[in-house]
Computed example of a mutant assay.
Amino acid sequence: MRSIGYREAVTIPLEVTLEGPGPAHLAGVAEIGVCDEICMPVRLPFAVDLPEGGRRDPRIAAALADRPLTAEEARAQATCTALSDGAGLDLRLRVAMPPLGRDEAVVIESADPGLWLSEPVARREGGALIARAEAAARDGGPVAIDRAGLRITVLAEGRAVEIRGCGAG
């Protein structure tokens, strides 16, 4: 089993655009999973007065600089197919992109909370990263995959590429 997360502290950058000048107050609730031996959902209320003039916090600037590359920035293009295997779907993904480094890993997430995706098995074939994962409905019903709603993240050597959606392959 693979776990992807953060230790100690995490900065989640958020860019806010105000409609007009003047101070602003931002409040809400962040829902996250906090894990040790098991993961527990946690609701974190927050409220902050934003500084007038849009001064940037250096921690936010550093988090934005350390974000994953987009598909365009990484010159990556993803295609995928989903074939029925009787109980669910066999998702096959091809990401054409230059290697990020040794031991590339792939994470596939769906925008559909009712869809379960297994941990992908990935290998490099020349200029493409090939990955396979199983997909099933969490309620045991029929399975459908919205290719546009997939988020594919490729990780290697402290670098990441995030690809939104995949074309028909």
Rank of each mutant, 00 (worst) to 15 (best):
L69K: 07
E73V: 09
E162K: 03
R159H: 02
T70L: 12
H25C: 13
R56P: 12
V10A: 15
V106M: 09
T81F: 08
G114Y: 01
P51M: 05
R43N: 07
G127T: 11
W116T: 00
D85G: 01
R102K: 07
W116R: 03
V121C: 01
L93V: 14
L26K: 15
G20W: 13
E37D: 12
I38Q: 14
G54K: 10
R56M: 15
D66E: 14
T153G: 07
C35E: 00
T79N: 10
V121D: 04
G54W: 09
M1A: 15
L93D: 04
V107K: 05
P113W: 05
L64M: 14
D85I: 06
R159I: 02
M97F: 10
D103C: 06
E109R: 12
D66L: 11
G167Q: 13
L89K: 07
A148S: 15
A47C: 02
A168Y: 10
L50K: 07
I4P: 00
A61W: 03
L89Q: 09
V107W: 04
T81E: 10
L100E: 07
R124G: 12
P68E: 09
G28I: 12
A9G: 02
R151Q: 14
S3M: 07
A62Y: 05
P41E: 08
P113G: 07
L155Y: 06
G88F: 02
C39K: 07
R138I: 03
